[in-house]
């Protein structure tokens, strides 16, 4: 049975891989491919963040009683990521490769330090605290 940690870690890796391909496309000035990959990346990221914000975090908060703690920090970092998504889109629209790659570089570090915290701490805690409810929460997340 897939745990929340395994499933969500897989989603993180998937997003990382699209981002890596996207950077290659932009560095090669292949803007058509970049536009396609960028749409994929932003859609995958937004879907992932929404899954957490609408299903996982509320379930976590309800079960642990920790409101305004770890999930608040995670939401805050999501907001910072979304700001960079916006700037990524602007750079894509302006076909500014230098600006685009600067944004992906910053986004990458922000995402990775965020992912380490989620994969190492938040997801395992969710699996542990949600216990028998975990599969049901995961199923709800997958429906988002």
């Amino acid at each position: 049975m897939t745990t929340i940690t395994e499933y969500m870690t897989g989603v993180h890796r998937h997003c990382d891989e699209i981002l890596a391909e996207l950077e290659v496309a932009v560095s090669e000035d292949d803007w058509d491919k970049a536009a396609r990959l960028s749409a994929d990346f932003l859609q995958a990221m937004e879907h992932h963040l929404t899954m957490e914000e609408t299903v996982l975090f509320p379930a976590f908060e309800q079960k642990t009683g920790m409101i305004g703690g770890p999930t608040m920090i995670m939401r805050e970092e999501h907001r910072q990521m979304r700001e960079l998504f916006q700037q990524l889109q602007w750079a894509l629209d302006g076909k500014a490769s230098g600006e685009f790659l600067d944004t992906t570089e910053t986004l990458l570090i922000l995402m990775q330090q965020h992912n380490i915290k989620e994969e190492g701490i938040l997801y395992p805690m969710s699996d542990q605290h949600l216990g028998t409810d975990a599969p049901q929460v995961l199923a709800r997340m997958q429906k988002v």
Partner: peptide, 26 residues
Amino acid sequence: KRGRGKILLQYPCGAAHQGQALKISF
């Protein structure tokens, strides 16, 4: 010089400029 030429970006800049957009050259 970054990327291809100079780019201008639209950036909505907080409550003081609500409804407006600042163009800030990178």
